[in-house]
């Protein structure tokens, strides 16, 4: 059996994290292909429902990436994202999902290498964790 390859959905804010992914691209910094980027205008736009749907749809991990605190293009959208993630993690815990299934990360425009590194680390982390229990349900 080949090694388990986790799938990741990354909600990336247009102004910082998505731009950082662009920088990783223009600098040809390779990272694992396990991630799918979904551009949103602001991390604060990511509804808990979207994250839940992504996990239900079979992603092993969901990442919400925004600007560093203080850098939000909309002043405080990232703070709202942080609140959402904190709340949702409690719910995921109740549902029996591991904490690592949802990750919040601040990545600034210039931090292309950090974006790539984050994806690499997250893939490794999820590999250790194994497939999402939701995904197992889907498969069986």
């Amino acid at each position: 059996m080949s090694e388990f390859e986790p799938s990741i959905l990354c909600f990336a804010c247009n102004w910082c994290s998505y731009a950082a992914a662009d920088i990783a691209g223009t600098s040809r910094i390779h990272y694992p292909p396990n991630v799918r980027l979904l551009r949103v205008m602001c991390s604060g736009m990511v509804d808990a429902e979207y994250v839940m749907k992504a996990l239900e749809a079979g992603f092993d991990g969901v990442m919400v990436a925004g600007c560093h605190i203080g850098d939000c293009h909309y002043i405080s959208g990232n703070i709202k994202a942080q609140e959402m993630v904190t709340r949702l993690k409690k719910l995921l815990h109740i549902l029996g999902l591991e904490d690592e299934r949802l990750m919040l990360k601040w990545i600034a425009t210039s931090e292309g290498p950090i974006f790539a590194e984050t994806i690499k680390e997250y893939v490794e982390q999820l590999k250790k964790l194994g497939p999402s229990p939701f995904r197992k349900e889907l498969v069986t």
């Binding site: 604060g44 736009m45 990511v46 979207y50 959208g77 959402m84």
Partner: peptide, 25 residues
């Protein structure tokens, strides 16, 4: 168009044009 209000709206009355839930989902 940051979308914070749409996330916070308790009845789902608010959506962001061009970033509607059906588009994202």
């Amino acid at each position: 168009g940051c979308g914070a209000c749409a996330v916070a709206c308790p009845t789902g009355a608010i959506s962001i044009k061009h970033f509607k839930p059906e588009q994202i989902l």
